[in-house]
Write a protein that binds this DNA or RNA. Structure first.
Lengths: 209, 209
DNA sequence: TAGATTGTTAATCGATTAACAATC
DNA sequence: TAGATTGTTAATCGATTAACAATC
């Protein structure tokens, strides 16, 4: 188990630090102060220093932070230095888009297979994958030591599928189904709820009129 | 301009209330107390009552809340009772998935056209849409009174496109490009950053080991 | 009426910001 | 060394939770 209790607010800022530091690296910028980073990322310098100091003293007084070192450290904190084996369930439009999404492999998530319950999808070739029958998902997970499932399925049946795959050892889920899944506490679920995002946009647009 | 200052934390819970109330409605449940809702949605009863009371006294002492009325009220608060005209830019895998996504029309967002800059995409038929040339985007926005743009494009060029469409009156953006866009303060941007979500999953999985 | 549950105020908790001594 | 900027403690701000009078 990891560090002291890091709040969710801090955790969700980490990928942003990583992205901005990557941008700086692309521009061959070698050092940056919390003040300068504040100017481009939009968090206060104080918050940036607090956030980083949850994980270690990465800076140097009078100098600031070394961009490359900090980028690499945050990468490690995010776990980008290891790999996970994943399967994707639900090979519809969204599933195919995610399967084609390359940012994935970069984060160390290797998709090993695509599954679908629809007979018309099974056997189809998508990218390097043949779509497999969801019936056989437990067997595949066990044989191939899969850690993660990406769920791009409708909410109906999602919890049942979840129960099945958790039973055979799935430890993390990237969930695009619009449902809050119940899982044992050692299983991590990260939700991407497009409808909630869209409704938020709707609210804010209404408010800004 | 809308109500008193509602915090982002509250706003992001509203779509969840709406979804759970919709589920209850489907089950023909007519009334619910903040305590019962707390049990299924996972927020405290106190928080639920605080949240709702930002917008009005929708409950009744000794009774609770009428599910149908509350669902409808939150729908109105979210702006689901009006429609917006939208275009989608970037007709790649993700763009096509979004264009096929029906939750959309339900939220009152009507996609009027798909745009792409890639000559090989232009002219393709996707669903009921022919993919149009991004070159002509300003003209289309003005002629058709478009309010919203859905951006499913790479980060390179995203800011430039943003500048162009803001100039001709776009008021909201659902942004899937992994970049924080600069916009005038009366333009709303709602980001969906898949990489940030994935990195968060990566972090949490590492931590739970 | 008695019981239930809201709406709302007050208390607590946690996150953000400010300040500054330490130190490169 | 003098100047800059961190790491960290203290102060502030905001969000969540608790409590309870109002009332259906």
């Amino acid at each position: 188990m990891g560090n002291k209790n890091i709040s969710m607010a801090v955790i969700r800022r980490l990928p942003k630090y990583h992205r901005y530091l990557g941008d700086l690296l692309d521009k061959d910028i070698q050092r940056i102060s919390s003040k300068e980073l504040s100017d481009i990322i939009g968090f206060t310098a104080s918050q940036i220093r607090q956030d980083l100091n949850n994980f270690g003293g990465f800076g140097q007084q009078g100098y600031g932070y070394n961009v490359e070192a900090l980028h690499s450290e945050i990468g490690k904190i995010l776990g980008l230095d290891r790999t996970y084996k994943a399967i994707l369930v639900g090979a519809g439009n969204l599933g195919q888009a995610i399967a084609n999404y390359s940012g994935f492999r970069k984060a160390g998530f290797e998709i090993k297979a695509l599954f679908d319950a629809n007979p018309r999808m099974i056997g189809l070739k998508i990218r390097e994958f043949e779509v497999l029958d969801s019936e056989n998902i437990e067997e595949f997970i066990q044989k191939n030591d899969i850690d993660i499932a990406i769920l791009c399925i409708p909410k109906n049946g999602a919890q049942e599928l979840m129960n099945r795959i958790v039973k055979v050892g799935i430890k993390g889920v990237w969930n695009f189904a619009p449902i809050d899944l119940e899982v044992p506490k050692d299983v991590i679920v990260e939700n991407v709820n497009l409808t909630e995002s869209l409704f938020t946009l709707s609210y804010l647009m209404k408010e800004s009129e």
